[in-house]
Design a protein around this nucleic acid. Structure first.
Lengths: 319, 319
DNA sequence: ACCGAAACGAAAATATCTTTCATGAGTGAC
DNA sequence: GTCACTCATGAAAGATATTTTCGTTTCGGT
């Protein structure tokens, strides 16, 4: 029925990326995330919906179809793609969104960063955008997938985290944190090393791929290897329909913010990925709390003397 | 804290009568006002609607009729009495109301993350905390210092970025971005290497130290060396009074959020540091725009083929 | 008990949403 | 270049939901 989910190769491949409950306020984010995988007319509909929730909520299928110059069928298809059972439900969500916008925030820094913006504006806009990215990501995260991923990580014999470029830094971040609570994790920075590592994995291990585009070959390849060796695989990506999800048991979707020349996509995707990674870490830490607490404390201790004379005068609570 | 706007008390509310535009959120009030003039079954409907907007919004006319033990006609009549053209519109308003209530309930995340928090709460709290951190950092950033730092970076012959542990990832992030726009930057991960590098610096070069505690010896040492060799030095730290600032020409302060066992300080300091680093980068990119624009475009190009079939356009939903 | 008015719900009528299906545009193979 | 194929798309049929109509029931007054 849903042509969207081509059952991928290995027969495994659990509840892919799209299986999320209808989004409440994450709609704008979802539109942005899914836009690339939409057809032209669907994009028109999605755009209209994201651009004027209130206005669209007042329209019937036919009305919206006419407004966007498409057909009822297309409107319904778009609604489905966005995660709703049909247009009726999308419309309801739209009404909710409109009400929220109305009551809540009026001011939005809509302008992009310009070449001649004063530095203070740059700070404000960047901070705002990153906050937005965080909100979108949080709203769009599938907690079921997240829970499953956490469970897998907490139980893993060892974990590999694959990421290239900026995503590699995120991978390292997760790795560092996991090591701190006594879990074995690696974030090979070299694609060849990654594959070599992946070969060592087996059932019970976890491989986690981080790629914004969802189609970074250097990251997909080791994940595929791990997948085929029977490891539990997780993908953190901005494209829940991208190639990487073929080999992912669990897909965690990051949000895609608008980008510009001065604000490369890497910035918001990094923010988004880090939030997901933090969630994973905290989830795992919760699950392994008895073992974790002393480990965390121990790593504090160990670090303390590396901070030279930690006597910064006032404050300085942690001994 | 002003969004307590709920009560429709303001001058608006004149619409009470009935022959008026659909009510936004004043629904509960309207129900109470109009209740006396309602028939028994209509009251039942109105009561249900006022009592559980969200629940009722999910119901069709028939559903609501059954729930209240009445008929469709009665439901429609009630909707009319409340000022809507029909049930459909009442339902829309209901959805809006529900969404508003929901979002109003949001700021309940003031609690710290607990060991037994459900995963959804973890996501919400982490996102909220990081947003908070961003806001704090942006508010606390000294734009003068920032501007000076940007100027120094943009003019530097070469730049060294020192950071250890989690801060090293931030350092690498900055380095990667600077390289992308053609600026020479290094982020040595090894303290010895860092010092070795620092020795090479001279006036016109820039050394940037990133340390949350402000007293990480391994980071202070190379900065000191650079400082003494005449390089322009910058510190990104959470402790503007820490030892590191001794050797810093410009100090950029990051915010320190509350931490807990499950939410190590590293998380918020990283968020904070990244924001500062992004600001630096964008500032530098602005200053060097003519040279930067083509460089950025070029790096896009170069990366494109590393991403399998990265065709943003229509179609292409996995083979 | 009888009358009248209003409340109420069953079902018809209508509007709206969903599905199916045929068409045509685009794409890759040959 | 043509051909076969896939897939996006909208028209119209089909299914639901909403609104209207209209007859029955209920209740108060005499």
């Amino acid at each position: 029925m849903k042509e969207t989910f081509a059952s991928a190769s290995g027969g495994r491949r659990a509840t892919g990326g799209g299986s999320a409950p209808p989004a409440p306020a994450a709609l704008a984010a979802k539109v942005r995330t899914l836009a690339p995988s939409m057809t032209r007319s669907m994009q028109r509909v999605a755009e209209a919906v994201a651009g004027d929730p209130a206005g669209c909520a007042a329209l019937t299928v036919t009305g919206l179809a006419e407004l966007t110059g498409t057909s009822e069928a297309t409107v319904v298809r778009t609604a489905r793609l966005l995660g709703y059972p049909g247009y009726r439900d999308l419309r309801l969500a739209l009404a909710g969104l409109a009400a929220q916008q109305q009551s809540g925030r009026a001011p939005a820094i809509t302008t992009d960063i310009a070449v001649d913006d004063p530095i203070a504006d740059v700070v404000a806009k960047l901070a705002y955008d990153e906050q937005q990215t965080l909100a979108d990501t949080a709203a769009g995260l599938d907690t079921v997938q997240l829970g499953a991923a956490v469970a897998a990580l907490a139980a893993a014999r060892r974990t590999d985290v694959y990421g290239i470029g900026a995503s590699n830094l995120v991978a390292q971040d997760l790795t560092q944190k996991m090591l701190r609570i006594g879990l074995i994790a690696h974030a090979p920075g070299d694609p060849h090393l990654a594959v070599t590592n992946a070969v060592q994995l087996r059932a019970g291990d976890v491989a986690l791929a981080i790629t914004h585009s969802g189609s970074t070959g250097d990251v997909i390849e080791p994940l595929r290897v791990a997948f085929e060796r029977g490891a539990t695989t997780i993908a953190i990506t901005g494209r829940p329909d991208g190639p990487v999800t073929q080999y992912a048991d669990h897909v965690l979707t990051t949000s895609t913010a608008r980008e510009s020349e001065l604000r490369p996509a890497a910035m918001s995707s990094r923010t988004s990925q880090l939030l997901v990674v933090d969630c994973l870490f905290v989830g795992v830490a919760q699950r392994t709390y008895e073992a974790t607490a002393p480990a965390l404390a121990a790593s504090y201790e160990a670090l303390a003397h590396r901070h030279g004379a930690l006597r910064g005068g006032a404050g300085d609570r942690r001994a």
